[in-house]
């Protein structure tokens, strides 16, 4: 357990170091002077020089990196250039929205993919299965932005089923709130459904050939009981792995989805901040995204152990 935590922790720490370093590297790539983006057309050269030193742009990159890391370790990610507010506060405001979006879409994807995989697992040649196989690959091949545009266009625009007019917070009431997240979550979920479905189904196919499941059949357990009670849990490992691995692409998808559907989450924050050359904010968001990835994967590791007693942490 301790050994596991140590190696895992070390690995994930390495991820964070690389990510934070990358974020720093990006700023060095920045062409032009970020101060003009902030001060606009009519600022005086003196004001620009002042801002330049305020932002620490006159320091060398290495010492800037270390002072940033030192502050970040204490939870201080600096002050946003374009808004003048603490980056940590802004991120804490946005992170829950993105996490909620990701959470709903993963939940939705699991709610669709797991029953679908379980119910088709023991009939690999049935027509439902073939349709599911082809459509899942098609879904995997469909870029999330196309899915978003089509869903917004057809479900939102042509059918008028859902509100595509931006995000409503919880304080706007749970109904409108969930409604404003519905289409984005469905869009994100669809790609995941296909991925989860394929993984879980192939695992289930393997599990169903195991002796203990064949034996279970001779003991007269019904099909549903065998699938759900006996076969599902031992088959979850790959699904969990995929869940951990795809969190990266899911976050990437969230960036696009948030900008299509106007969700004020971390993704949109990142795009806006990078367009505004607010590199302090960009750095903070990048770090938090890395952190999210790390936390999710740690959780997945613990889930492995929870689902399979053979695995010891």
């Amino acid at each position: 357990m301790i050994g596991f935590l140590a190696t895992r922790g070390l690995r994930l720490f390495a991820v964070l170091v690389v990510v934070s370093f990358l974020a720093q590297l990006l700023i060095e790539l920045l062409p032009g002077d970020p101060t003009t983006a902030i001060l606009g057309l009519q600022a005086s050269p003196e004001a620009r020089a002042q801002l330049h030193s305020d932002l620490g742009l006159d320091q060398d990159p290495v010492s800037r990196y270390f002072s940033w890391v030192a502050a970040a370790a204490q939870g201080d990610l600096g002050t946003s250039i374009s808004w003048g507010t603490p980056v940590t506060d802004t991120i804490l405001e946005r992170l829950p929205i993105t996490l909620e979006l990701l959470g709903w879409s993963i939940l939705l994807a699991l709610l669709i993919a797991v029953p679908l995989a379980v119910l088709t697992a023991d009939r690999p040649n049935a027509w439902t299965n073939r349709i599911a196989a082809v459509s899942s690959l098609t879904l995997i091949s469909t870029p999330v932005f196309i899915l978003g545009v089509l869903l917004a266009g057809v479900v939102g625009l042509k059918l008028g089923w859902v509100d595509v007019s931006g995000y409503v917070g919880w304080d706007g009431g749970p109904g409108p709130h969930l409604q404003s997240l519905a289409l984005p979550a469905v869009t994100l979920a669809l790609g995941q459904v296909a991925m989860y479905y394929r993984m879980l189904q192939s695992d289930l196919l393997r599990t169903l050939r195991e002796d203990y499941l064949l034996l279970a059949r001779t003991r007269g357990f019904g099909r549903q009981r065998i699938l759900w009670v006996h076969a599902l849990r031992p088959s979850l490992t790959s699904l969990l792995t995929v869940l951990g691995l795809t969190i990266g692409s899911l976050i990437g998808g969230a960036v696009i989805i948030e900008s299509i559907f106007g969700i004020p989450g971390l993704g949109r924050l990142l795009i806006n901040a990078s367009l505004a050359r607010d590199f302090v904010m960009v750095q903070g968001v990048v770090l938090v995204i890395g952190l999210t990835y790390v936390v999710v994967n740690l959780t997945v590791d613990f889930l492995y152990a929870a689902f399979d007693p053979r695995i010891r942490l």
């Binding site: 008028g160 089923w161 859902v162 969930l178 519905a182």
Partner: peptide, 10 residues
């Protein structure tokens, strides 16, 4: 269900 959750708004 997912769509119904989203509800309708005419």
């Amino acid at each position: 269900g997912a769509v119904a959750l989203a509800g309708c708004s005419t």
